[in-house]
Each structure stands twice: as C-alpha cells, then as structure tokens.
Simulated assay, not measured.
Amino acid sequence: MKLQGNILDIKNTRDSKNLGIEIHLDKIEYITNKKDGRYNQPFDFIDELETPMVITGDCLARINNKHLQDGEYDFQVYDKVGEEYVLNPDKFLSVLITYDFEADITILTSVEYSVTVTNEEFKQIKAERSKEKKQLRGKGRRS
C-alpha cells in the first residue's frame, strides 16, 4: 500500500482536480451475504494482489462520519464510465493515516478496500484465485 498526494484534499464531493492523488492497494476484500441456516451472514474473501491496484482521487468522495477516530477517513468510490463518473455503492474505501511531525510527512497506516458482490460472483472470484494459486505452486515444483 502506498499513498501519493494529499488525501486530505479530497472533500465530500467528487472532484476531477484530485486526479494526482493515488492510493496503491495490495489487497481487495470481497464481501457477500449468504443464508446460513435461518439468517443471512456476511462472508468475505481477501484477494492479495501481485501488482497493486491504483485508485485515483478523482474517483473518491469523503464520507462525513463523526464516529471515526482521528486520522481515519472513509470514502465513496466512483467508477469512471467513459467521461462520466458513476457512484458505485458496492465499493468502499477506508484509510488510516498518521502524521510524523519530526519528518514532516503523512504516513499511510492502513487501507481497507471492499467490494460487495453477489453470491455467484463471490464463488467465481474465489475459484479463479484458487486456480491461479494452484498454477503458481505447480510452476514452482517443475523448475
């Protein structure tokens, strides 16, 4: 995970001026709700990425939440479709930053990026990642 630019420049509305802000993600959490007996239960799968995924600041809008700790920020995520930005309610980004006064730098402490998917998509993503990991392990043995 890596942060470029000042994430505090992102306000409550999406703005194309924030294109220079980049968050490099090394994992994505996929979430779904399945019926577990009588009740719907949340299930998740964390996908560790080999190459980081980059979200730019022009696709983010800060969520005002007074219950967050100091340095913790939640964001709505927009998808860029052609030249238009469309809010994706199934995507969510939360970051935790601290400021080092001695070094005068902002440090990205943690990033959580989650995507809510259907049960079918969840099963497909999980199966694909499992297959990819098996192929990688198999290549290591043959060498």
Results as ranks from 00 to 15, higher is better:
Met1Phe: 05
Gln4Arg: 11
Gln4Pro: 09
Gly5His: 10
Gly5Ser: 06
Gly5Gln: 10
Gly5Asn: 08
Gly5Val: 04
Asn6Leu: 13
Asn6Ala: 06
Asn6Gly: 14
Ile7Pro: 10
Ile7Cys: 08
Asp9His: 12
Asp9Pro: 15
Asp9Cys: 08
Asp9Asn: 14
Ile10Ser: 00
Asn12Gln: 14
Thr13Ala: 12
Thr13Trp: 11
Thr13Lys: 12
Arg14His: 05
Arg14Glu: 15
Ser16Ile: 14
Ser16Cys: 07
Lys17Pro: 11
Asn18Cys: 09
Leu19Arg: 07
Leu19His: 12
Ile21Cys: 09
His24Asn: 07
Asp26Phe: 05
Lys27Glu: 13
Lys27Arg: 13
Lys27Trp: 12
Ile28Trp: 15
Glu29Lys: 06
Glu29His: 03
Tyr30Gly: 00
Ile31Phe: 04
Ile31Met: 03
Ile31Lys: 01
Thr32Trp: 03
Thr32Pro: 07
Asn33Gly: 03
Asn33Pro: 03
Asn33Glu: 05
Asp36His: 08
Asp36Arg: 00
Asp36Gly: 01
Gly37Cys: 12
Arg38Val: 07
Pro42Met: 02
Phe43Val: 01
Phe43Ser: 01
Ile46Asp: 11
Ile46Cys: 07
Asp47His: 07
Leu49Cys: 09
Leu49Gly: 05
Met53Gln: 10
Met53Ile: 05
Met53Asp: 06
Val54Thr: 07
Gly57Pro: 09
Ala61Tyr: 09
Ala61Ile: 04
Arg62Ala: 04
Ile63Gly: 05
Asn64Ile: 08
Lys66Trp: 13
Lys66Ala: 13
His67Trp: 14
Gln69Thr: 09
Gln69Arg: 08
Gly71His: 10
Gly71Asn: 08
Glu72Ala: 07
Asp74Phe: 00
Asp74Asn: 09
Asp74Leu: 01
Tyr78Asp: 02
Lys80Asn: 11
Val81Lys: 01
Val81Glu: 14
Gly82Tyr: 10
Glu83His: 02
Glu83Thr: 09
Tyr85His: 08
Tyr85Met: 00
Val86Phe: 02
Val86Ile: 05
Val86Met: 03
Asn88Leu: 02
Asp90Tyr: 00
Leu96Asp: 14
Ile97Ser: 04
Ile97Val: 15
Thr98Asn: 12
Tyr99Gln: 06
Tyr99Ser: 03
Asp100Gly: 04
Phe101Trp: 11
Glu102Thr: 06
Glu102Cys: 04
Ala103Glu: 15
Ala103Met: 11
Asp104Gly: 05
Asp104Asn: 09
Asp104Pro: 06
Ile105Gly: 02
Ile105Thr: 15
Leu108Ser: 09
Thr109Ile: 14
Thr109Pro: 05
Ser110Ala: 09
Ser110Gln: 13
Val111Leu: 08
Val111Ile: 13
Glu112Tyr: 03
Glu112Phe: 05
Ser114Ala: 07
Thr116Val: 11
Thr116Lys: 01
Val117Met: 09
Asn119Met: 10
Glu120Gly: 01
Lys123Gly: 04
Ile125Arg: 00
Ile125Thr: 03
Lys126Tyr: 14
Ala127Arg: 06
Glu128Ala: 07
Glu128His: 12
Ser130Cys: 07
Ser130Gln: 13
Ser130Lys: 08
Lys131Ser: 15
Lys131Asn: 14
Glu132Trp: 15
Lys134Gln: 15
Lys134Ser: 12
Gln135Gly: 04
Leu136Trp: 15
Arg137Gln: 15
Gly138Lys: 03
Gly138Met: 05
Gly138Val: 03
Gly140Leu: 11
Arg142Glu: 15
